[in-house]
């Protein structure tokens, strides 16, 4: 039972009146993310950015409301059943498996790989600049290379939704820009509907077409990135960005 859908147009993604809570904190998201484009998810610490991604990925189940991907309700589906790939800030790789196998797990969770699969893995490694490093273990890679492996795995998984949870936060500025450009290029080819959590306004400006700004566990403002970063962007966001610049 599959609903055929070319990935090239991306999938529509909607959080329909979803609520969630942990401890005393209550969160409520109601938002639509443009299909096939990159949306930056921004907001102060504790505003619920990671929770929003976890709800889409299925690591958290909403108390009420629905997670709709292409109109289908995935609210209760397990993470592996969802048409979603996610790159975390760290621990994206299994430390005891080499680069090739870490990517291969994206195709077959039991590493039963066909010749075609192996070619797809080689392609993805080439696309992310990792050719020749197939046999390396994660500890033999730099921080940037490790995230490239995670990106390569997202490529072979080829799911229409991509979630990036501050994946480059621990990298230096030059390396971070390289990685952002890689993400932008790959996204332009595959047209994945991408949510990108970041603390850095310049990162969002560099790759995102849209911005969703969270505050106190709910969506405080949305809009095109161009408008957001202009002088008459949303007030809440300007306060946040101003405070960041003032630091």
């Amino acid at each position: 039972m599959t609903a055929d859908m070319p990935a090239r147009q991306g999938a529509s993604l909607r959080l329909d009146k979803t609520t969630f809570s942990y401890g005393q904190t209550r969160l409520a998201f109601d938002a639509e993310f443009p299909a096939g484009e990159i949306t930056a998810v921004m907001g102060p610490s504790g505003s619920g950015k990671s929770t929003l991604l976890n709800l889409v990925a299925g690591f958290e189940i909403p108390l009420s409301g629905h997670v709709l991907i292409n109109g289908l309700d995935f609210s209760a589906a397990s993470p592996s059943e969802r048409p979603v790939s996610m790159v975390f800030q760290e621990n994206n790789l299994f430390a005891h498996l080499d680069v090739f196998r870490n990517v291969g797990l994206g195709i077959s969770p039991s590493l039963a790989l066909t010749a075609a699969d192996r070619m797809a893995i080689a392609d993805a490694l080439a696309r992310t600049g990792l050719t020749g490093k197939e046999k390396r273990l994660p500890r033999e890679l730099s921080g940037g290379e490790r995230q490239r492996v995670a990106l390569a795995r997202a490529l072979v998984r080829d799911r229409p939704v991509l979630l990036l949870d501050e994946p480059f936060a621990s990298l230096g500025p030059a390396l971070r820009e390289d990685m952002l450009d890689l993400v932008a290029a790959v996204q332009a080819e595959r047209k994945m509907t991408t949510l990108f959590v970041t603390h850095q306004p310049e990162d969002a400006r560099r790759v995102a077409a849209h911005v969703v700004f969270l505050e106190n566990g709910t969506v405080a403002a949305t809009g095109r990135a161009h408008d957001f970063f202009s002088a008459n962007g949303p007030a809440a966001f300007r306060r946040y960005a101003g405070a960041m610049n003032g630091e």
Partner: peptide, 24 residues
């Protein structure tokens, strides 16, 4: 380290024991 990754990639049961847990 591995829980979310396994959940996302659908690595469960025997495959998980053999590929992920056993080496560690």
């Amino acid at each position: 380290r591995h829980e979310r990754l396994c959940a996302q990639l659908g690595i469960t049961g025997w495959a998980r024991l053999k590929l992920i847990d056993w080496p560690v």
